[in-house]
């Protein structure tokens, strides 16, 4: 490609939660293999809009830049995804970047996703162990089972599945596919399974699994390819059996 080529980037900005949002356009020098993060670094170095107006560097979240930390989820050209793996050459221009809308905004592209971590507490997403002292190996696990669990445990809590879900919005408290997947993961572990009842009760709480109406956008948006709808259906079955036989036989 020709030297001196530029890319136009439009960014939705908001100085704080109380201030109005606005769009700003930037022009960035093209280089091979660029991603959206590289554009944002360029803008930070030269915070001037395309029309020559000085502005501030864009606030955004990023950490690992290899799609394993989950920090940099934003909406690019209308699609929720990780900014680090959004390669400029694969995007239509101008590139439109917005913050995710399902979470409270902090500033510019930064949103507050603490809801997911709070829900992980309420859903008891851990394997309760007796202590960290050396008391010998864990339970044996069949390789096939490990493969399934591994696929589920790669969730990076990016929030893309919540962002694309029509049931995650200000009218509903839905915990979202990522958290339901966590319930499945911990119920699969031999030790975690000993406490499955508590998780299955929790997942029937307010904003629980009943809120899912199978639009199934989550599984398409997941950058880690986690079979979220399978997890959802599996937890649905477990939760239902627990609900029915819970009161019948307890």
């Amino acid at each position: 490609m020709a030297e001196g080529k530029t890319i136009v980037v439009k960014i939705k900005r908001q100085a704080s939660p109380t201030e109005p949002a606005r769009w700003e356009e930037f022009s960035v020098r093209w280089r091979p293999n660029m991603n959206v993060i590289a554009c944002l670094i360029d803008i930070a170095e030269n915070p001037v809009t395309r029309y020559g107006k000085p502005t501030t560097p864009v606030s955004y979240e990023a950490n690992c830049l290899e799609e394993v930390c989950g920090a940099c989820a934003v909406v690019i050209n209308g699609r929720s995804r990780q900014a680090c793996s959004a390669l400029v050459d694969h995007l239509d221009q101008p590139i439109r970047i917005e913050p995710m809308s399902s979470f409270p905004i902090v500033r510019d592209l930064v949103v507050d996703r603490s809801k997911m971590f709070e829900d992980a507490k309420r859903l008891r997403c851990w394997v309760p162990i007796d202590g960290t002292y050396d008391i010998g190996p864990g339970p044996r696990i069949a390789p096939e089972r490990q493969q399934v669990a591994y696929a589920l445990s790669r969730c990076i809590f990016c929030g893309n599945c919540l962002e694309v879900c029509p049931k995650v919005n200000e009218h509903s408290d839905f915990v979202g596919a990522a958290l339901i997947n966590q319930v499945r993961l911990f119920n699969m572990h031999p030790t975690g399974a000993m406490h499955a009842h508590e998780r299955l009760q929790a997942v029937r709480g307010i904003g629980g699994i009943q809120e899912c109406d199978n639009a199934q956008n989550c599984v398409k948006a997941c950058p880690k390819g986690i079979p979220l709808t399978e997890s959802n259906n599996d937890v649905n079955r477990q939760a239902l059996l627990d609900a029915i036989f819970g009161w019948m036989f307890r």
């Binding site: 008391i135 864990g138 044996r140 390789p143």
Partner: peptide
């Protein structure tokens, strides 16, 4: 062993060991 007990999804041998 501790990590294994915490539920880390270590790859397994056919015998179910690490």
């Amino acid at each position: 062993d501790l990590l294994d007990r915490m539920g880390v999804t270590f790859n397994r041998t056919p015998e179910g060991l690490l």
